[in-house]
């Protein structure tokens, strides 16, 4: 066992954990922060994404013993951080995911929202391509990603003061059908 002094969601936490445990194991099994999901557990799926010093990393491949003196943000920390910085209610990314119904089973959602939060922190008004690139390390096996990308676009639109695309419309509506083909 090793005593770790961590900074989780703004709180100083002292916790004893086996020295070879990953950050994900310490979050889930020592601190009860089960919002970070244990998916593939080997760096393929992105469900365990957390922010370390504001950057998205995979908690399943990060040794907890190497996270001392670094600021860790999990999904549980988004709302308190938003409220602390003067906002009300959930983080705008969370609100947009809610509004767009950007989930089915929900397993990928914490990682998705943290990747999106990290993107918006460094680039408040990203393009659709930049959003897709930023979310490329998070797999969703349910949705096909359309509503997820739209949710981030909605958060961007609200922040940047542009009219958002209508949720559920990946393509512009009312486009004329192509003429029927003759054999």
């Amino acid at each position: 066992m090793r005593v770790l002094h961590l900074l989780i969601n703004g709180d100083r936490v002292t916790v004893a954990a086996p020295e070879h445990w990953t950050l994900l194991e310490v979050l889930r099994y020592e601190l009860g922060l089960t919002g970070s999901k244990q998916g593939c557990d080997k760096g393929d799926c992105g469900a365990c994404t957390v922010l370390v010093d504001g950057k998205p990393v995979l908690a399943c491949l990060t040794l907890a013993a190497l996270c001392e003196e670094r600021a860790v943000t999990t999904i549980e920390g988004l709302l308190p951080a938003h409220v602390k910085s003067g906002g009300s209610g959930p983080d705008p990314v969370q609100a947009a995911f809610d509004e767009c119904g950007a989930l089915q089973c929900g397993f990928c959602q914490p990682g998705m929202m943290l990747s999106a939060r990290a993107l918006l922190d460094r680039n408040a008004c990203p393009t659709r391509t930049e959003i897709q690139d930023a979310l490329a390390g998070n797999l969703c096996r349910c949705t096909g990603y359309t509503q997820i990308v739209e949710a981030v676009e909605l958060a961007v639109a609200k922040h940047c003061g542009v009219a958002p695309r209508r949720p559920g419309s990946a393509r512009p509506r009312g486009r004329s059908r192509p003429p029927p083909r003759r054999a």
Binding site: G43, T49, A136
Partner: peptide, 9 residues
Amino acid sequence: VAGPQLRTM
């Protein structure tokens, strides 16, 4: 290389 999180790490 890989995805954004893995390039950060």
